[in-house]
Design a protein around this nucleic acid. Structure first.
Length: 594
RNA sequence: GGUCGCGUAGCUCAGCUGGAUAGAGCAACAGCCUUCUAAGCUGUCGGUCGCAGGUUCGAAUCCUGCCGCGAUCACCA
C-alpha cells in the first residue's frame, strides 16, 4: 500500500534530515481534501519540535526527499504545515491493470487459525420475527461475511430459545382456545399461529389480573397470581420434568414455528452453520451453576434460589436458579457459552445482541471468569442499537410491531409499483420481473438498515426506507446494472477493456474512482476490525456516486480514442466488480439490469 | 437514584485513533434526456457540531460539569 510506503519514507526522511527517531506509525497520512492539489497529505505540525523550523520549510524538505526517493510520486506542494503529495497517474493505472482480473481483490485467504464463532438471530419460539430481528439478522450475517473476507474462519450459529415461560404461555393458550387449529388448517405460517396464541394468552391474563385488581389485589401481585400465570408456571415445571403430554405439544408447536422461521430466513438471505437449542443446553448451564455453588463461588438463599454476588464488581446480585429449581436466561447462557467453547475453541465468541442486554453480558463474562473460564475474555458482545419507529419504540401491546414478513411484502410491492411506473419492467417476463422486484426491495431494506453505525439507535421510517433514490441500496444496484449494460454494448461493438495499451493523463474523476477502488481492501479490514457493515455500505455508496458522476460527464463507448475507451471500459468493469463485492458483504444482490 | 449510551442542516445519517473552509441523502427551489439506462447528473437554499469550562499551536473529535433523550438495575428473555 502506498500510504504505508509514504509513511516509511517520511519517517526515514525525518531521521535522515533531522537525526530524529521517528517510526512509520508516528506518521499520520490522510487523504488530501478535495479542494487542494494532491492525493495524500502529511501534516508536519506535530514534528516541528523535531525540525525546529517553520512548517513550510520542514514540509518542503520532506516533500523533496519523498519525490527523490519514490518514483511513483510525481509532485508535491506545501500550504502552511500541510504537505500535499501527488501520486503519478501511471501508479493508479498500473494498480488497475494489476487487479482487474483479481478475483480475490479485497479478500484474504482464510488464516487457518481458530475460528470466530458469531451468534445472531436468537429468536424465541413464541412469536414471529419483527423489525428488530431483521436488524439483528442482517448485522450478524453481514459481519460474518466481512470477517471471512478479512481472512477469519467463521462459524455462524443460531441459538433458538425454544423453552421457557413464554413458550408455555403460547402452549397453554393453544390448549385452551386453539385446540385442533394448525398452520395448514388456517393456511397460516406456523410462527404466526403460535404468535397469535401468545397474544391471546396475554389478553386473557390481563383480564384476569384486572378482575383480581377490582377485588383489591395490587397490580404486580395480580399478574403474578392470576390463575393463568400459575398454570403457565406449572406447565414449565412439567416441561422440565419431562411430562410426555407437555413435551409432545411443545415439539409440535415448535416445529410449526421452525417452518415459519425457515421461510423468513430464506427470504432474508440469512443462514447458519450450526443451530443450538436452549432445550439442549440449559441442563449444562444448571450443572455449571451447581459446580459454582460447590466451590462456594455462588450463594444459595433460604428459599433455595441461587445467586452470584457481584457487588465487588460494582454490580448487584444476580439470580442464576429460581427457588423452584428452574433455570433462567443467564443459566442457559452459561451453558451455551461453555458448549460453544468446547465445540470450537474459538478465538473470539461474538454475540450479536441488542444494547438493552449490555448488563447481561457484563454479568455473563464476570460469572464465567469467576468460575475459572479464562476464555470469558474472548466473549465480545456486538451490542447494537434499537430500531425506533417515527412514533417511538415498537410495542407489541400497542400493535406497533413491524412484522418481518409483512415488511418484506410491502417493500416488494413498492419496488414493483415504482418499476412499473418508470416502465422498467415492460419487457421482462413474470419470473424475471418478480426476481428483480425482490432484489431491489431487499436491497433497499438491507442497505437502509446496514448503513447506520450498528452501535447507534436508528429510526426506521417506512416511507424513507422504500425510497430508491439518493443514498440507498437501489441507487448502488442501479449503478451496477448501468455498467453491465455498458459492458454488454461494448461486447456488441467488439470493444474490449484493456489497460495495458493506455498510458497518458487521466481525468480527475477517473483518478478519484481509482483511489476509491484502491482503498477497498483497507476498507474491508477496517469494517472487520470495527465489526461494522456501515463502513462497507458508506464506501459502496461513495464509489457508486463517483462513478455516476464520471459516467455522466465523460464519454466511454463514444470516446473515439480506442485506447482511452478501452481504459474507461476497464475502469467501469472493475468498479462493477468492487460494487458487487461490497454489496455481497452486505448480503445484497445486484441485478444485471434494472 | 446508581450504571451505561446517545445529542452534527427541517428530517435521516457520515465524519469522531485531534488538523486546512464540518460532508452526503431526503425535503424545497432552478436546470439537464436527438447521444453509453433520468432509479441518473448539475446548481441554489440550509450548521452557535446540546450548553459551559478545560487540555492543545489546533477540538465536532480528548477530559470535566450541566441540560435533554434512551437503555438497564426482575424468581422476564
Amino acid at each position: 500500500m502506498i500510504e504505508k510506503t509514504i509513511s516509511n519514507i517520511v519517517a526515514e526522511a525525518f531521521n535522515a534530515i533531522y537525526s530524529a527517531n521517528l517510526k512509520p506509525k508516528d506518521v499520520l497520512i490522510q487523504k488530501t481534501r478535495k479542494d487542494f492539489q494532491g492525493d495524500y497529505t502529511i501534516n508536519v505540525f506535530p514534528f516541528l519540535k523535531i525540525s525546529r523550523e517553520k512548517p513550510e520549510i520542514t514540509a518542503g524538505k520532506i516533500g523533496e526527499y519523498l519525490i527523490n526517493k519514490l518514483p511513483e510520486l510525481k509532485d508535491y506542494n506545501v500550504i502552511k504545515g500541510f504537505l500535499n503529495i501527488v501520486v503519478s497517474d501511471q501508479y493508479w493505472i498500473t494498480f488497475l491493470n494489476d487487479h482487474i482480473a483479481d478475483q480475490m481483490f479485497g479478500r484474504r485467504q482464510a488464516s487457518g487459525e481458530n475460528p470466530t464463532v458469531i451468534e445472531y438471530s436468537s429468536p424465541n419460539t413464541n412469536k414471529p420475527m419483527h423489525l428488530g430481528h431483521i436488524r439483528n439478522n442482517l448485522l450478524g450475517s453481514s459481519i460474518a461475511e466481512i470477517l471471512k473476507a478479512a481472512g477469519h474462519d467463521v462459524v455462524r450459529v443460531n441459538l433458538i430459545n425454544d423453552r421457557g415461560i413464554h413458550i408455555s404461555k403460547s402452549m397453554l393458550a393453544w390448549q385452551k382456545w386453539f385446540i385442533g387449529i394448525t398452520p395448514s388448517s388456517e393456511n397460516l405460517k406456523g410462527d404466526k399461529l403460535v404468535g397469535d396464541c401468545y397474544v391471546k394468552f396475554n389478553e386473557e391474563l390481563k383480564s384476569q389480573a384486572e378482575d383480581l385488581m377490582r377485588s383489591g389485589v395490587e397490580k404486580g401481585e395480580a399478574e403474578k397470581n392470576a390463575p393463568l400465570m400459575l398454570e403457565a408456571q406449572e406447565m414449565l415445571s412439567k416441561w422440565e420434568n419431562n411430562d410426555p403430554g407437555v413435551r409432545e405439544l411443545w415439539t409440535k408447536m415448535n416445529a410449526w414455528v421452525y417452518e415459519g422461521f425457515e421461510k423468513t430466513y430464506k427470504r432474508l438471505g440469512v443462514d447458519f452453520d450450526k443451530v443450538y437449542y436452549e432445550s439442549d443446553t440449559y441442563l449444562l448451564g444448571k450443572s455449571i451453576v451447581e459446580e459454582g455453588l460447590k466451590q462456594g463461588i455462588l450463594i444459595e438463599k433460604e428459599d433455595g434460589s441461587v445467586w452470584a454476588d457481584l457487588s465487588e464488581e460494582g454490580l448487584d446480585e444476580k439470580l442464576l436458579l429460581r427457588a423452584d429449581g428452574t433455570s433462567v436466561y443467564m443459566t442457559q447462557d452459561l451453558g451455551t457459552a461453555q458448549l460453544r467453547h468446547d465445540d470450537y475453541h474459538p478465538d473470539k465468541l461474538l454475540y450479536v445482541v441488542g444494547n438493552e442486554q449490555n448488563y447481561h453480558f457484563d454479568v455473563l463474562k464476570i460469572v464465567l471468569k469467576r468460575l475459572g473460564r479464562k476464555w470469558a475474555e474472548d466473549i465480545v458482545h456486538v451490542s447494537y442499537g434499537m430500531v425506533e419507529l417515527p412514533h417511538g419504540k415498537m410495542k407489541s401491546r400497542e400493535g406497533t410491531v413491524v412484522d418481518a414478513d409483512e415488511l418484506m411484502d410491502e417493500m416488494y410491492h413498492s419496488a414493483e409499483a415504482m418499476a412499473r411506473e418508470l416502465g422498467k419492467a415492460a419487457d421482462l417476463n413474470d419470473n424475471e420481473a418478480s426476481e428483480l422486484f425482490e432484489t431491489i426491495s431487499l436491497g433497499a431494506l438491507k442497505y437502509f438498515i446496514l448503513r447506520v453505525d450498528p452501535k447507534k439507535n436508528m429510526l426506521f421510517n417506512p416511507e424513507e426506507s422504500i425510497d430508491f433514490n439518493g443514498n440507498t441500496g437501489p441507487f448502488i444496484q442501479y449503478t451496477y446494472a448501468r455498467i453491465q449494460s455498458l459492458l454488454k454494448k461494448a461486447e456488441d461493438n467488439k470493444m474490449q477493456a484493456n489497460i495495458d495499451a493506455f498510458s497518458g493523463e487521466i481525468f480527475p474523476k477517473e483518478k478519484e474512482i481509482l483511489k476509491i477502488l484502491y482503498a477497498f481492501p483497507a476498507t474491508v479490514r477496517e469494517a472487520a476490525a470495527e465489526l461494522s457493515p456501515a463502513i462497507i455500505a458508506n464506501y459502496s455508496y461513495e464509489l457508486a456516486r463517483e462513478y455516476n458522476q464520471f459516467y455522466q460527464e465523460i464519454n466511454i463507448l463514444r470516446e473515439t480514442d480506442t485506447e482511452k475507451a478501452a481504459f474507461r471500459l476497464g475502469l467501469s468493469l472493475f468498479t462493477a466488480k468492487v460494487i458487487e463485492s461490497g454489496m455481497k458483504l452486505l448480503g445484497i444482490a445486484v441485478p444485471q439490469r434494472m
